[in-house]
């Protein structure tokens, strides 16, 4: 990473986009207390993540990408576990787990071990674990990967109403269309550097976010060569 500085307004739906290997996951890990940065700070609602980690983590719900889950638990057990780890009350956890699993269309598989879940279901159960304690900030790394369209729509409407009621969401993605439709703010990251940040309309400057992104990041190769692919 090359000295990224990002300001995420409270109550915004913030998208971080960038090509593969741009440093999205690394940035989010350092901002959420999972990976210690060499220098710099991360502040959530006035709480320094690295100076007062326990307090900061209470404010955050995190869906990390590329980490395992305790997958020998059933879906229901895993979300319950996430709630209890945060010191929540048993009855509150139980009622929220039921609602979350229903909202994410996992109620039918609540008693199945997470190891037997499909990729999309695993993503959803991890999301449920991040939501259980009603955080003020949600940090979701690639939340829609492998999730079916219906579930993705459900998740989006959950997130929309969450933001409407004052919550803040940060998502990383490389699906530009999704970010353009869903987010109100966006940051473009490439090779560990911040290329652009602001509201979606500011960043895309009239063009579609995808075209603007390609223009910012560069590296689009023109479809010359590969003639043999058109000759059969």
């Amino acid at each position: 990473m090359d000295g990224i500085s990002l300001d995420v307004p409270a109550g915004s739906f913030f998208g971080i986009v960038g090509p593969n290997g741009a440093g999205k996951t690394t940035t989010l890990s350092m901002a959420t207390g999972l990976l210690r940065p060499d220098f710099g700070t991360a502040v959530v609602h006035g709480v320094d993540v690295w100076a007062r980690p326990l307090e900061a983590k209470r404010l955050m719900g995190i869906l990390p990408d590329g980490v395992r889950l305790f997958d020998r638990l059933t879906g229901e057990q895993l979300v319950t576990y996430a709630g209890l780890l945060r010191g929540m009350d048993k009855d509150v956890v139980a009622s929220r787990v039921g609602e979350l699993l229903t909202a994410l269309d996992l109620a039918q598989d609540a008693g199945t071990l997470v190891v037997d879940y499909s990729a999309g279901m695993t993503k959803k159960i991890a999301l449920a674990s991040a939501l259980i304690h009603a955080p003020r900030l949600l940090v979701l790394d690639e939340p829609f990967e492998a999730v079916d369209p219906v579930s993705a729509a459900n998740i989006r409407s959950i997130l929309d109403s969450y933001v409407a009621s004052g919550g803040t969401v940060i998502v990383s993605s490389h699906v530009m269309d999704l970010v353009q439709r869903m987010c109100d703010h966006v940051a473009v990251v490439s090779a560990g550097r911040l290329l652009a940040a602001g509201t979606v309309d500011e960043v895309r400057a009239g063009a579609s976010l995808e075209d603007r992104f390609v223009q910012l990041v560069g590296g689009r190769s023109h479809t010359e060569g590969l003639e043999w692919l058109r000759t059969f």
């Binding site: 209890l84 010191g87 048993k90």
Partner: peptide, 18 residues
């Protein structure tokens, strides 16, 4: 097969603290 929830196993038995 799909299995519905409702069985928390040991999570329901042991004290609900971290």
């Amino acid at each position: 097969g799909k299995r519905k929830g409702g069985k928390l196993g040991l999570f329901g038995l042991l004290p609900a603290v971290p």
